[in-house]
């Protein structure tokens, strides 16, 4: 069946992508490996839900078969949820089809029958528009499109897996911190923090603000002072709080990419030329070790 093929290992994201496909006035065919998801997606407004069944527990192993399926069915577009495993499958499919692929598109539209996409380059400082022709692959993050509803037929399809890679073990990541993507207020700590114990000044401020504590990449990945889930940016969490307040964060573009949808951005930094001030609504040029405790005290007193 021709149309837009949709895949995501997150079923809510798959539903959003069906919303996109139907919004383009095209047929939407959802691929899933999960029986429960197939059931839930049967009310996603898709034209068809294909429950794929094969011999591997690693969805990535079906890349080649999905490529064959898309070519055989005359698919127009394969739109995939941008998760770790979604991105992987998408790129394998594009590789086997030797076709165009746009990763993490911020917008996708059909203009004169051609697909036009936009995405960020250079850490988020540059927006690139591309025109794609023929069958192509695009990945999209959650939250870009609205899900719709409507009954869809569910069919089961046997599909062959590449079994050269096998799953040995799977360990859930125990999330130590809060989910920053839904936090209303965030206090963000940067590499200016001298030592782990000094995180206390951030926690104290967060307590009076009712905020969660996040950080930049180095604080999590180099210092290991906060869990990796707590770092914000292009390769970390993308956040959209009412208030984001950073201390000792320089504001390199890859970090700023993750905070741009915040309502109000506040920065405290000793360097008046720090790029974070260009990305901020309000800022204080000063030492966070003086400013932050005083701010906490002032807010407490109010």
């Amino acid at each position: 069946m021709a149309g837009i093929y949709v895949y995501s290992d997150k079923k809510d994201l798959a539903a959003e992508l069906v919303g996109f496909a139907k919004g383009c006035g095209k047929r939407a065919i959802v691929l899933t490996f999960d029986e429960r998801a197939a059931k839930d997606l049967s009310n996603s407004g898709a034209d068809k839900v294909c429950l794929l069944k094969g011999d591997s527990e690693l969805v990535e192993n079906y890349g080649k078969s999905i490529a064959h399926l898309l070519a055989e069915q005359g698919a127009e577009l394969f739109v995939v949820g941008a998760t770790v495993s979604g991105r992987d499958i998408a790129a394998r499919v594009a590789g086997y089809l030797d076709c165009a692929m746009v990763s993490e598109a911020s917008s996708i539209t059909y203009t004169d029958g051609k697909l036009v996409t936009e995405r960020m380059m250079y850490g988020g400082s540059v927006q690139q528009s591309e025109v794609l022709e023929g069958l192509c692959v695009v990945t999209v993050r959650a939250g870009k499109f609205e899900a719709i509803s409507g009954a869809a037929e569910v069919t089961t399809l046997e599909i062959s897996a590449d079994t050269r890679t096998t799953l040995v073990e799977r360990k859930d990541i125990v999330k130590e911190g809060a989910d920053l993507s839904v936090a209303e207020r965030i206090v963000c700590v940067g590499m200016a923090l001298d030592k782990r114990e000094d995180l206390q000044i951030a926690h104290d401020l967060a307590a009076v603000l009712g905020a969660e504590v996040g950080c930049t990449r180095g604080v999590a990945e180099e210092k290991h002072w906060l869990p990796v889930e707590q770092y914000i940016g292009m390769s970390g969490a993308v956040v959209k709080p009412k208030l984001y307040l950073s201390m000792g964060v320089s504001g390199q573009i890859q970090h700023v990419f993750g905070i741009r949808d915040s309502q109000i951005i506040v920065a405290v930094n000793t360097d008046p030329k720090a790029p974070i001030f260009k990305a901020a609504d309000y800022g204080i040029v000063g030492d966070m070790y003086q400013v932050i405790p005083l701010l906490t005290k002032t807010l407490k007193g109010a």
Partner: peptide, 20 residues
């Protein structure tokens, strides 16, 4: 396989009120 049709800077529209 893709044609780049435009490249532009991302516009940052923030108030940038800095108390210095």
């Amino acid at each position: 396989k893709t044609t780049v049709s435009a490249l532009k800077a991302y516009a940052m529209n923030r108030k940038s009120v800095i108390f210095s």
